[in-house]
């Protein structure tokens, strides 16, 4: 019995049963997609932080609010989240102030609502795909485990036909099955790390936006 088990990764994948192969394909797809979203999110957050930084710098350096508003309107495409919040709030405020019947309290409420709406929209855009990463992070180990359990079940069923079960007859089947778990973990680990990282980033940005909205409301109220 010249047993030279070819234990290369490729042979382990091709030797697995159809269902396990499907599981592996699904996990590979999940892994590719999650890495794709990880990179997209990295770019997005980097950009958002940069834009927020530059807008806050311009805002707090004591520029004219009208001027800032005009710049925000003109740079429609390239405006950052904070700039958009400011733009919608300021627009709503000036519109309300043009109506003499409105009290200052009503104008401030309306301004806040407008800013809140923009904030929500932007946050949703920032949050997009994070739930996908979370799903991959939590589900793919289970999917991989399912593939492994199925593969081991099969290898044990085949084992029943062998009178003398040695380690040599059991091992390849289990190795094949374990590949599925390995792939599940392979997909899950980066997704977990990225999700935690992005959730932290998102929280920080949200806090910055919130505090800006409060401070801006105060400024508007003082001006009127």
């Amino acid at each position: 019995m010249n047993v030279t088990h070819d234990m290369s990764v490729w042979s382990l994948v091709t030797g697995a049963s159809v269902l396990v192969q499907l599981v592996m394909a699904g996990l590979l797809l999940a892994s590719v997609l999650s890495w794709y979203y990880i990179f997209i999110k990295v770019f997005t957050f980097k950009r958002a932080v940069k834009q927020t930084d530059s807008f806050e710098k311009g805002f707090w350096s004591g520029g004219d609010l009208d001027e800032l508003f005009q710049r925000a309107v003109n740079s429609r495409g390239g405006a950052g989240t904070l700039e958009r919040i400011f733009e919608s709030g300021f627009r709503e405020f000036t519109r309300m102030r043009k109506q003499p019947a409105q009290s200052i309290g009503a104008a401030m409420d309306s301004t806040r609502r407008a800013m809140r709406a923009t904030y929500q929209r932007e946050m949703e855009s920032l949050e997009s795909h994070l739930s996908f990463l979370a799903s991959v992070a939590s589900v793919s180990p289970y999917v991989g485990l399912f593939g492994t359990v199925w593969g081991i079940m099969n290898s044990f069923r085949e084992l029943a036909n062998v009178a003398q079960a040695t380690l040599g007859t059991v091992a390849p089947g289990i190795a094949e099955a374990l590949i599925a778990t390995a792939m599940g973990l392979f997909a899950a680990i980066p997704a977990v790390v990225a999700y935690n990282r992005f959730a932290g980033d998102l929280n920080r940005l949200a806090t910055r936006f919130d505090s800006f909205m409060e401070e801006f409301s105060n400024i508007l109220q003082r001006q009127s």
């Binding site: 794709y36 990179f39 997209i40 997005t44 958002a48 989240t81 932007e122 855009s125």
Partner: peptide, 18 residues
């Protein structure tokens, strides 16, 4: 529509990186 919308270029780069 959003400030944080992903550009086409970023998508391609992300895909290639992944």
């Amino acid at each position: 529509a959003y400030a944080t919308q992903v550009s086409q270029q970023e998508k391609v780069i992300s895909g290639a990186f992944a």
